[in-house]
Design a protein around this nucleic acid. Sequence first.
DNA 1: CCCGATCAGTCTACGGTGTAGACCATCAGT
DNA 2: ACTGATGGTCTACACCGTAGACTGATCGGG
Lengths: 210, 210
Amino acid sequence: MRKLKDARRPEILDATLEIVAERGLDAISMRSVAQRLGLTPMALYGYFRSKEELLDAVLGRLLTEVPLPPEGAPWREVLTHLAYGMRAVAQRHPTVLPLVLTRPGISPGALRLIDRIYQALLTAGVPPGEVPRLERSLSTFVIGHVLSEVSGRFSLGTLDPSARRAQLPPEELPGHDALAAVLDGPVDSEAEFRANLDDVFVMVESRVAR
Amino acid sequence: MRKLKDARRPEILDATLEIVAERGLDAISMRSVAQRLGLTPMALYGYFRSKEELLDAVLGRLLTEVPLPPEGAPWREVLTHLAYGMRAVAQRHPTVLPLVLTRPGISPGALRLIDRIYQALLTAGVPPGEVPRLERSLSTFVIGHVLSEVSGRFSLGTLDPSARRAQLPPEELPGHDALAAVLDGPVDSEAEFRANLDDVFVMVESRVAR
DNA sequence: CCCGATCAGTCTACGGTGTAGACCATCAGT
DNA sequence: ACTGATGGTCTACACCGTAGACTGATCGGG
């Protein structure tokens, strides 16, 4: 079978997203997805060549949920719009997020988003040679923040901040020690997101003023 | 069995790293690791409570391979040192990198690195309230770059830039179109890394100047 | 010298996984 | 009426993580 069907692809992606929302990424299996649709696992192979391809499609689908900014908006607005859009999607599907960082963002949906960033940077006056690099930075920036906010490469573990610190004697961690008050306090992630965005703008501007 | 042994832990981590280097992340299984050591899969459970814990230990081990910068070095030097150290580790173990993004960096090794960044930012004059956020940003930055560097080299064979672009009609991707020349050219990732680092410094300075 | 404890590792088995390969029912078009 | 595609099934294989129960060796005290 060379050609893949696509009629029920959206339906399959829906089912997959439901499962991941309810029981986490690891709960995705060809069997679990098929079962939710009342199908046999092997039926899915008519639509996706492999599980990997299915997961990539899920990712692609997520990225199409990010609303595109209005055409011709000022660059700052475009970047802000995309960043918040990305964040909203992440909050809607928190458990899927590791996929974004793990799989190459190659889908048409991803391309469309990246293109808007390219345009924004170009109109901001960033030299073309720098644009792709800056896009990569910006994207990882936003995604990285959102990930840390949502599923915890940094903050969220089974260990609270002070317990984590206690793994090593304080004299080995003077930095943590000096920041104890700050580290134990709550994180205002909304504010942190804004601040990161501001930093992104600073970066862009520093590349414009060349 | 409450307490875990640790005598042969390094040996086990070595074997795991060898496997991942030879056959990729997915080739890690309790069985494959055990076999390489001439052990039964279950023997590993004397050292690690689960596969997840083993993987976390692998990650921890990687981070201890990042050399610490000399004590009391100027902050720019500290950050540069750490960034290049991280990059070197990533290049030594490219296939393991997704772990860094996927698992919480909670090990003592990670803490030590983070602490150095905290110290650097504090001596740079960043307000303490901003330090943890900036650390998170910086780390994501470096890791993100390194990831795209490593996985970019990876996917270059499967789907080159112009083929990727061709998934959508050019009129949908004016940004890509305008950048075609740049995008098709080779990426000097050494230069890109330097540039990203410069951007990081700009960010830090902008927070110092308030 | 023996006893109990601890240690290092084994064996078996259960309930999962992705997917190759062969198969079949339905239907549209010639 | 035959053909070929479509959409799905069934079976089977090789592999996975790990719970549970076990064995044999080593060793510190009594």
